[in-house]
Design a protein around this nucleic acid. Structure first.
Lengths: 128, 128
DNA sequence: CTGTCACTTCAAGTGCACTTGAGGTCAAGT
DNA sequence: ACTTGACCTCAAGTGCACTTGAAGTGACAG
């Protein structure tokens, strides 16, 4: 088996992130790629996992710094669990919002009202 | 009953949006406040509803221009329903993502692993 | 008459998350 | 030996969504 270290291009395709984004994340302290082969960054499989997590959190609306904070303080510093719980709650609220919008949209698709924004049912869904 | 037109400050408190954001939305064509009392914008109740919808869509991750497009083409132009359906699908994907992150976080809160990011269960939830 | 207050315009500034471009390095293939 | 390709750094640029600041307006209270 080879040395199990990937270069940035491979990591990019595995994670769906652009190489420039990976460098940016490194600069922001989200990932460490200490290992280098000459100039080239080498990423471990663990880093790929970490990056997938980061990508997921980004899609979920977390800011880069926010993710950095939660990933850094590895120790169970008093606040960490609280902050994670708070983030989960925030997500619940966001999810609820999105589900309402989604249901509103699905209604709009088959709604007769013109424009759909004035449909009472549509409004009711949004203010759910 | 008074003339039922609200000024920007009232609309701001009703919608939770900053006055500057309301002016920005107007500039972007999301809302019309044609009516003016002197210099001052007067918003109708309908506009307040529309703004609430916009705020909701923004929280759901839609771009301002995207919202403008969906709200503008009031006519059932061939594409509208399709685009709304596509947006709903996109939301479903985003929601799924967020639910995974949320569940991961909730697990992390009561997880023994240090750091939680290396917990297999945590990983399983995220890739679930 | 004079504040004060909530609004107005317009241009410029902010913060985030990257992206792009110029110029350079390095290993491998022809 | 030379080119190609994938990488590198660093500074500057981009796009979005607002926010801020300066200078002004108009109505109303004291």
């Amino acid at each position: 088996m080879r040395d199990d270290l990937l270069d940035i291009g491979e990591v990019a395709t595995l994670t769906g992130l652009a190489p420039s984004a990976l460098r940016y994340y490194e600069e922001q302290g989200l990932v460490a790629s200490e290992a280098r082969h000459g100039l080239r960054r080498r990423f471990s499989r663990e880093m790929v996992d970490r990056l997938r997590l980061i990508a997921c959190a980004r899609r979920a609306g977390f800011a880069v710094k926010e993710i950095a904070r939660s990933l850094d303080m590895g120790l169970d510093s008093a606040g960490l669990r609280d902050r994670l719980a708070a983030k989960a709650d925030r997500l619940d609220a966001d999810i609820a919002d999105m589900m309402r919008v989604r249901d509103g949209l699905r209604h709009a698709v088959k709604c007769e009202h013109e424009p759909f924004t004035s449909c009472p049912e549509f409004k009711a869904i949004l203010n759910g």
